[in-house]
Amino acid sequence: MALKNERDFAFKSLLLGVLLTLGLMGVSQQSKAEYADVVINNYADAAGMRPAVFPHWFHRIRFRCKVCHADLGFKFKAGGNKITMAKIIDGQFCGACHNGEVAWSVENCAMCHSGIPGTPTHFHGSTLQRLVAPAYKPLDAKKASKK
């Protein structure tokens, strides 16, 4: 079945091309986002929402790290807090402030859910990403090749 192989090959090279383009776009995007921006996307994509983007720079002008990472119990791990909307409307995590009292309320969905769909959970501009062999790229490639 040479023909099938050929078609397979054409399809695979197309796929490879698309993946490479996406990969290159990914690399160039990495270096532009503000240092310490966190994309949180454990569940959002699957529920048809854009991923949430948390800007550290914006919040640290208003709060010390202690407020979130000691008092409110945010663990030092992107995606490690298993944040859901149920918890947020019960006043946990982002909901401790985004409740219409300390900061604007939760109905402003698109202010938090502003990430490009499909962006994985990660930390922007981290030293690990800047290493010549970044840690999260191969993980990504593995995920892509499984599809």
Binding site: S28, Q29, Q30, K32, A33, E34, D37, V39, R50, V53, N108, A110, M111, H113, S114, G115, I116, P117, T119, H124
Partner: peptide, 16 residues
């Protein structure tokens, strides 16, 4: 870069 040029924010989202 401003959020709408930083490559992680969706520019089809008005709130961006």
């Amino acid at each position: 870069a401003p959020p709408w040029e930083d490559g992680i924010h969706d520019t089809t989202n008005e709130a961006t």
